[in-house]
Write a protein that binds this DNA or RNA. Structure first.
Lengths: 217, 217
DNA sequence: TGCAAAATAAGTAGGGCTACCCATTATCTA
DNA sequence: TAGATAATGGGTAGCCCTACTTATTTTGCA
């Protein structure tokens, strides 16, 4: 474990207060701060210039998302350890982050102690995910996710249209298929998602899970 | 305009870094800080105890949401000016906030300068909404709100049940009235909300605006 | 190439939501 | 107290969604 002062850190977040809070916290604790960035573009520039040991990145930033910054930096062979700092407990982001082989994923609700623990683990070559991630709700999301993956491409197409409040008639028209076919797909979707036998259960589910559906391929 | 030191401020947020950042920022700028709370329960206790001039509250906190804290505090006749500080540019939250007659609504992407401007306005008796909200969407929300206010008590009761995914039959049963009455109310609600003539438009609207409906009285 | 899965679609039936009509009773307020 | 508003509910009709069944064609993969 190197001295803290030999660990250079960059923080990037488009929320000024949080950015300042994190910067001051780490700075006061002896880490060498190489900069703070208020958007993805700034973050990428500073990372290329300083090649910090560790970079904390928000996901949702102007110009470039944190994930895009990581992808670009890694493409350039930069060896920085990346830690995502997001306020979203979003399953799809997690899987993307894992795909990019990032070092850690923290939530903004995590305490400073958790952040230090994360840095320790990362410097030891391990990965660290926020302890909040073992919650039931996330497993629930994963469950819904698994069910969604059972859908065939056509079913998915139709589900997306349902989530956009299209009626069967409208869906049939836009896909150049019969209403009966749409109805059949709906039935199959309902079965695969294991929805209750209530009126409009599929419509309701689709609208409630709109953001989940949007990102499925 | 009173001296800053005579303005007592409380901050509440379940994101430790942001909480610390905001506290330090305001503190360093001469405001009298009466405390920081990491959840809604703590926030409410401190507000009741200290009755600060201004309270900054996050919406999404453990135990009690910021909006619930405000509702409870106002019920107790506490004269604190409430400013919401949220990550979310969610229109329904805005509506709820307006329903509670809060003093300001800031986003976490706002700068410290914006926060000070907000405090100024609030101390001058005005309200302040984050510049990130375009006036269009604010007006849109106000419009929806006005429409909702046209509903009679019975219509509102039924709308709340619709937003909980109850069918007409279930609503009729729970209110001990005829399904036909429920249907009649639905028709009237649709007319008052000026919904499009699409299948299930009311069900969809109710679910999408669930959080808005919840707080109307 | 041939089989399995997926996509297509129709028949029949039933239940839910909505519109437009109507009427009665209750409640509140000027 | 009278008139307006709200709440109650029936008739009829239409469209939409869903279930269960059956069947044909298309597609993808082994």
């Amino acid at each position: 474990m190197p001295y803290k002062v030999n660990i250079s850190v960059l923080v990037a977040d488009d929320h000024p207060l949080l950015l300042k809070g994190l910067y001051d916290e780490l700075s006061a604790n002896g880490y060498t701060m190489v900069g703070m960035a208020k958007d993805g573009m700034e973050a990428l520039e500073l990372i290329i210039k300083h090649q910090p040991t560790i970079a904390f990145l928000d996901i949702d930033m102007p110009y470039l998302t944190g994930l895009e910054v990581i992808r670009t930096a890694k493409d350039k062979g930069i060896a920085t350890h990346f830690i995502i700092l997001s306020f979203l407990k979003d399953e799809t982001y997690i899987s993307q982050a894992k795909a990019l082989q990032i070092s850690g994923y923290l939530l903004k609700e995590d305490t400073a102690e958790t952040i230090y623990k994360c840095i320790e683990k990362v410097m030891a070559g391990e990965t660290f995910f926020s302890p909040s991630f073992n919650s039931e709700s996330l497993q629930q999301v994963s469950l819904e996710f698994l069910k969604l993956k059972k859908l065939t491409p056509s079913e998915l197409t139709i589900l997306k249209l349902i989530s956009k409040e299209k009626s069967n008639a409208a869906i049939a028209e836009s896909l150049y298929i019969s209403i009966r076919t749409v109805e059949k797909h709906r039935s199959n979707i309902i079965a695969k998602l294991e929805l209750e036998n209530n009126p409009n259960s599929l419509t309701i589910w689709a609208i409630q899970n709109k953001s989940l559906i949007k990102d499925i391929t």
